[in-house]
Every structure is written in C-alpha cells, then in structure tokens.
Simulated assay, not measured.
Amino acid sequence: MDNGTSVPERAEVRPRQPLPPLVVAPPDPKPAGHRRAGGRLYVIDGIRLLAALMVAAHHYAGTWRADRPGNLIWDRPVSEIMPTVFRFASYGWIGVEIFFVISGFVICMSCWGRTPRQFFVSRVIRLYPAYWFAVLFTTAALIAVPGVWERLRLREILLNLTMLQSGSGVPNVDGVYWTLWSELRFYLLFLVVVAMGLTYRRVVVFCSVWGAVAMLAPVARLPLLELVANPDGAWYFIAGLALYLMHRFGQDLLLWGILAMAWLMGQLELGNRIEEVERVSGWRGSVAIFTVFLLFMVAVALGYTDRIRWKWLVTAGAMTYPLYLVHYAAGTALIARLRDTMDARLLIAVLVTGFLLLSYLIHRFVERPLSRLLKQGLNTSFARVRNADRRA
C-alpha cells in the first residue's frame, strides 16, 4: 500500500544490518488467544494423578520378584503372586521422573511475573499443610501396625516436620519423602532466576548452566557442588522448564536441543536407577515409557490438548500430592497385616481406593484451610517487615 512515503523504484534500498552474532533475540510470546482461557492445563492434573497411581502400584505390586527377596510386605515374591500385575507395576517407579518434569513445567508457569516473596509463599502453602499431616498420619500408622518399618525416634520425627531432614542426615518418616529433597533444591536454585525476573533468555541460561554443572559435579568429586546441582534429577526439571518455554513462546531449535539433551541424560539416569535401586524392570521399557511421556508433554506444550477441560481433573490433580505422601509406609504395613485375608489384587484395589478417599479428605479439610491461614500469616509478616524497613 502506498502511504506517501514509499521509496522510488530507482532508489537503492540499504540492506538491514544483521544482529551481532552473539545476540539471540527471544521469540515473541504466543498470541493471547493461543493459550486456553484461564491458563489452566487440565490435562497436567490428570497426568499427575496417573503418575501417583503408577508409583503406588509399583510400591504395592512391583518391587519384589523371585530373585530379589528382602522385605516383609508379601510372604513371597509378587512376581509369583500376581505375575501380570507385577509385569506392569515394576515400571511404576518412572512416575517419580514424570513428577519432576511436570514440576519444572508447573513451577515455571506459576512463577512467571511473580516476586520472590510470592514464590516463597506459594511453595510453603502448597507443600507444608499436607506434608505435616502425612508425617503425623504415617507415624500413627506405623505405631498401630508395627513390624514392617522401623519407627523413628521422637526427635527425628519432629525434625521431619521441617522437610529438611535429608540435609541433616536424619531418616525420613516415609521413604517417599526423598523426592521432596530434590524438589526443595530445585526451588532454591530457581529462586535466583525468579529474583532476577523470569524471561525466555534467563530461563534458557539457567537450564544450560544447571545442566552443565550437573554433568560436571560427579566428575569434579565436590560433594557440596553435587548436593546443590542434584545430577540425579536435574535434567528432568530442565526438561519441564524447556517444555514450558515451548508452551509460552512456541517451539524453536534451541528448546528442542535442550529437550533432546534432557532425554539423553534422562535415559542414562533411568538405566543407573534400574541397576542401583529398582532392578525389577528393563532399560528399554523404561526409556520407551519416558519417551512417550515427553512426546505427550510436547503435545501439551504446543496446545494440542487444550480442548481437554474436564473439571474433575482439577480435583484429581489436587489429590495427587496427599496420595503420594501417605500411600507408601502406611499402605505396605497394611498389606503385611492383611495379605492373608483376601485376594492380593482385591487388597491392592481396596488400599488404593481408600488412600484416594483419604487424599481427597486431606485436600478438603487440611490443605485448604491451613493454606489460607498460612498465606494470611506470611503475607502479614512480610508486610510488617516491609513497614519496619521503611521506618528504619
């Protein structure tokens, strides 16, 4: 269209000057209409519950076969009691890696545009109410059903309420709490980026630096560096961060490269975990499950699942964290006590159903009211600190 300022045909048009080679302009955010109204990705809530059920199935029916005795949950190997169930449940431990990827995605999404104070408050009110209940519930369950798990001393139980027991060399009340230590270290590292202000470029740099340190830490033989870098879980969180950037800004070669690196490092960690801890499933099957999950998350990030808006998935997602916290020690202790009273498959179904109901009650009557009180209290405290600083 000629607006009166067009260049004559014979005039020479100067070419645009290229950007300096080291400057990479981040992509423009997706149009507001690309993302589903309200911003909630319902399908992620469903994936979270599925991952929790995978872990529960693994703990109940996928951790002991004929060549791996060593616990008192069942009176004989699960691979003999229910071989078909065992064949699938033996891969359920991958639900933890799925949790880590989703955590990277969701944390980046929920913290975008927030201050460090808001980030801190959101993590406290999300993690602690259900966790405090779980510590007390599991302790009571192990007192009521002794003989399977060793009960900790009172001072160790009290320290567990801080969620910092792994950093103090104190055992967990429930073995599943080990993942919370990985989550806390991720939050601490990501808080640095939140304080700087989240942008595409800063999150990419964070992924690159963290990934490099996570690879170098074990070779450097520096325990503190390895503790902070968390090489066993780093690349799963990094995958989640890259997926969220795809969701917010669209796909590009750089993000695909980060995701490919996360897959390559992840498959190695899966193999190491099988050899060192699980020993009940194959590397190929584990990598196949992990690969399908990542590809599905790519579809989520690119908007192919935005039409899934089932409201019940919100409730399913809310039940996930309580279910994960309470199912293991208490559930396996009950299996040891009740295994001779009914069919093994029925017993597992009853336990899972019962813990799902308990998880909903925890969310409804523990998490919701305590979260509101904690949020109000923390916001009041931060306001007082801010006012005190101004007066000073």
Rank of each mutant, 00 (worst) to 15 (best):
T179D: 02
G169N: 07
A220N: 07
R221S: 13
Y187L: 04
Y177L: 11
P231V: 02
V219H: 10
E226S: 04
M215F: 11
V205N: 13
V204M: 12
Y177K: 06
A214N: 10
R221N: 10
W178H: 00
V173H: 06
V203S: 12
G169D: 09
Y200R: 07
P223W: 00
P223R: 01
T179Y: 11
V203K: 05
V176A: 14
R201I: 12
P223I: 00
A195H: 04
L222S: 06
D174V: 01
F206I: 12
F206T: 11
N172S: 14
S182C: 03
L191K: 09
V228R: 07
N172G: 06
Y187N: 09
G169I: 10
L188N: 06
P223G: 01
A229C: 11
R201C: 05
S168A: 15
V170M: 07
G197S: 02
L184G: 06
L216M: 03
V219Y: 11
G197L: 11
V173P: 07
L222T: 15
V219S: 10
V173D: 07
L227G: 09
N230R: 15
V219L: 11
S208L: 15
S208R: 10
R202I: 09
L198Y: 05
A212E: 01
L184N: 12
Y177S: 03
L184D: 01
S182L: 05
P218Y: 13
E226N: 14
F190W: 06
V173M: 14
L198H: 11
V219N: 01
R221K: 12
A214L: 07
T199L: 06
L188W: 10
F190R: 11
G211R: 00
N172Y: 15
P231I: 02
V170H: 02
L225W: 03
Y177P: 08
E183T: 09
Y177G: 04
G211V: 00
V170G: 05
N230Q: 14
D174F: 00
L224V: 15
L225F: 09
V219F: 12
T179P: 00
A212D: 04
L180V: 03
L198V: 13
W181R: 14
S208P: 02
L222E: 08
G169S: 08
W181N: 14
V170F: 03
W210M: 15
C207A: 14
V192K: 14
A212S: 11
D174C: 10
N172D: 15
G175A: 15
L191Q: 10
V176F: 00
P218K: 10
F206M: 14
G211F: 01
E183Y: 11
L191Y: 10
D174G: 05
